[in-house]
Design a protein around this nucleic acid. Sequence first.
DNA 1: GCAAATATAATAGTATTACTATCAAATAAA
DNA 2: TTTATTTGATAGTAATACTATTATATTTGC
Lengths: 222, 222
Amino acid sequence: MNALNISVSAKLYNKNPEETDLGKRILSKSIELMEEMGYEHVTFKKIGLAIESTEASVYRYFQNKHQLLAYLINWYWGWLEVKMAQEFMMLNSAEDKLKRAVELLVLPMDEDERIPHIDEGTLQRLVVAEYPKIYLTKEVDAENEEGYFLSYKRLCDTLGILALQINPDYKYPHSLFSTVISAAQSQQFFTEHLPRLSDAANDRRAIIEFLTEMTLNSIQKR
Amino acid sequence: MNALNISVSAKLYNKNPEETDLGKRILSKSIELMEEMGYEHVTFKKIGLAIESTEASVYRYFQNKHQLLAYLINWYWGWLEVKMAQEFMMLNSAEDKLKRAVELLVLPMDEDERIPHIDEGTLQRLVVAEYPKIYLTKEVDAENEEGYFLSYKRLCDTLGILALQINPDYKYPHSLFSTVISAAQSQQFFTEHLPRLSDAANDRRAIIEFLTEMTLNSIQKR
DNA sequence: GCAAATATAATAGTATTACTATCAAATAAA
DNA sequence: TTTATTTGATAGTAATACTATTATATTTGC
């Protein structure tokens, strides 16, 4: 077992991939493959090949590619939340915590050696490139009931609570942080691929400053 | 010919659908079908059936489903820009223009009778549900060079210029408006499907207030 | 240590999708 | 009215997203 375990809803897999060696290889290789060739071009057959096993084996762990992506993205948000909780212990003001949260959303991730089968840096790039695809479907309502988006919602709540500590009268904490988290992802994507949609020429610090200003200016009492 | 024509880059179609009756039926029915059953579940075969023609006919106008979606979404942003330009003529301050722009992004659209083959209200709902899918692909760089995202970029520019009229020192006009436009879409989606990610219980006015505050507070000199 | 249960590998097969190609009939343009 | 263009009808192909089956490992419970 791992020193650290990120819990992901049991509805997000057929058979828990964290419990077997093959399962971990599926996670590790599908992160790699999806980041490299893009979600649309990945098939369970290709994953089977990459893990030196078969398509059928992958199906034993995940019902389909969409569920696998949802698993990985949930894992990422869950892991980010743990990271934030750890770092928040050292910080004393809600404002500092929010600033640090924005940094964690945008700065590249180092690998966590406690979890050798997941490369957090690659996973972060995968999330930047694919995350809205897990909810932009006609199945969203059914999947929402299955808990497909729990970790994302929890993260928004957590940050929203910090905002209310700064200004208890702020009316839009959930909207603000779903916007900020989403903007953190898309600004990273835009600086790389559609630079005219951002003002941060490949400079993560500028993205952080933009988001931090936007967040704090929105919350502030006036 | 139409009284009003929204121009869409010629790279977004094989054969211009605005020029023939069949082409217009393709546009009209694919908006309907995609909004109704979701992008993933639409096929050219189904569109062919819906327009009482064949799969092959649809392929004569669009290379594939992705290009068709890109066409429709570009058409939407192009049309919104025209709408905004019309309304801005009546308004005298940059702030009023920005406020109105946010409203146009969020309020439901009435049909424009000058363009009978496009139902703008349905198209708007389609854009809310699908727009990031046109750039979240591995082909984004190639498609960007083909002009797949021009109308979106132009819209962000236009609004960014208004922001600079309010505060010429504001450093992030492009980032801000790509964020605001994107948030306008996703907040509409969240209030309907993932309400815990917003604070606007099915109330478009609340979304507008949230976005307007966020925008103006970000720009303001302080 | 052995029987029973479970996990995996290898393979086959099906329906659907995303196209490409062909050709004749209809329509429009010169 | 000849010629070109557009459409309709049909066929075909490779890939995808699965489901099913069976033999062989591997693990677990007793």
